[in-house]
């Protein structure tokens, strides 16, 4: 029997999440793993927007910033528990994506890229300048999520890095499951159809502004949740999270691994998160490498690493 892409992806992801810790030489690696998962969550959102619907966003770090600062400021300014603050951040991101997306998504190509880029930069500018609320460029402390204490009171004591590794891993799995469900659903087909030919999608009845807006809002929620998780596990956040470079990194992760494939994009997030960690002695070359990867992948493997590799394997098999 052949496994569907969905089951195979979820199975492989789950196996990787459970099995890799057996090879971790120190607790530090749990932190790196959790970072991979958090980036994976944000990138899965971009799979829906860019991979399925073919719309680019160079401003999704803005939503990560909204999610991160919601979880930081909710407890201090609104006396909300951190867990509710995460949800508030997601709702706020969805609302902002809805309001901004309506006009922005009428744009195409370069204009959409620049408009989203501008949006992201505006968010990071507000976060850095409104220091009375956000703590300004120096950043702000983030409260403890509290879930770890809850687990401990139930008898499951986890060290912070282990907890965050496991928790981010579970959220990533859920995120991947939702995105894979969408792929093979009526909405997912409508998105992929408009990616293939916008005019043909319209003539089969796809309400293009409506479905692109849905994709934009969903991907914003993914980025927001990722931002919240990052802030909560670092217990600290600065406006850099909403910065231009993080938006670009997310897009690069997605297209490097393969924006059209959930597994590919998460794989891309993994590689591009691990590389700088593994090659710290090359830190000076980080931008050079990132730029080079972006150019080379788009010239030689437009579909990304994983889909191109799969095509090669299948081509041989047939």
């Amino acid at each position: 029997m052949r496994l569907s892409t969905k089951s195979a992806t979820l199975l492989v992801l789950a196996l990787l999440i459970v099995a890799t810790p057996f090879f971790f030489p120190s607790a530090y690696y749990y932190r790196v793993g959790a970072l991979v998962f958090v980036n994976g969550i944000a990138v899965t959102g971009l799979v829906i927007l860019t991979g399925y619907a073919g719309q680019i966003s160079l401003g999704h770090a803005g939503f990560a910033g909204i999610g991160a600062y919601a979880s930081a400021l909710g407890p201090t300014h609104l006396s909300l528990p951190p867990s509710l603050s995460v949800l508030l951040g997601a709702a706020l991101s969805a609302l902002i994506a809805f309001l901004v997306g309506r006009p922005i998504l009428r744009l195409k190509g370069y204009y959409l890229a620049v408009a989203t880029l501008g949006f992201g930069i505006l968010v990071s500018m507000v976060l850095a300048n409104e220091s009375g609320i956000t703590g300004g460029p120096d950043g702000v402390q983030v409260a403890e999520l509290g879930l770890r204490d809850l687990l401990a009171s139930l008898g499951l004591k986890l060290k912070a890095p282990v907890f965050w590794y496991a928790f981010s891993g579970v959220v990533l799995l859920v995120g991947a499951w939702l995105a894979l469900n969408l792929y093979d659903s009526p909405t997912g087909r409508a998105l992929r159809a408009l990616h293939g030919s916008e005019v043909a999608a319209k003539t089969v009845g796809v309400d293009v502004p409506r479905v692109t807006l849905q994709a934009f809002v969903i991907s914003a929620v993914y980025a927001s949740v990722a931002g919240s998780l990052l802030a909560l596990q670092n217990r600290f956040v600065t406006p850099d999270i909403a910065g231009y470079m993080y938006s670009i990194e997310l897009v690069t992760m997605a297209v490097f691994g393969g924006a059209g494939s959930v597994f590919g994009a998460i794989f891309g997030a993994g590689i591009l998160t691990l590389l700088p960690q593994a090659l710290t002695f090359l830190a000076e070359y980080e931008q050079l490498m990132l730029g080079l990867i972006m150019v080379l992948v788009m010239i030689f493997m437009r579909e990304g690493l994983v889909p191109s590799a799969l095509r090669l394997i299948r081509g041989r098999g047939a």
């Binding site: 860019t50 073919g54 680019i56 160079l58 195409k108 190509g109 370069y110 890229a113 670009i248 897009v251 690069t252 297209v255 000076e284 070359y285 980080e286 931008q287 050079l288 490498m289 990132l290 730029g291 080079l292 990867i293 972006m294 150019v295 788009m298 010239i299 437009r302």
Partner: peptide, 28 residues
């Protein structure tokens, strides 16, 4: 030139990649 005919999204990523590359090189 090697990417002639590529979709706009690819071209955006290429020129942004090139800008990051040039910046990285200038820094070195």
């Amino acid at each position: 030139e090697p990417a002639r005919g590529a979709p706009v999204v690819s071209l955006i990523i290429i020129t942004i990649g090139a800008s990051i590359f040039i910046r990285g090189a200038a820094q070195l």
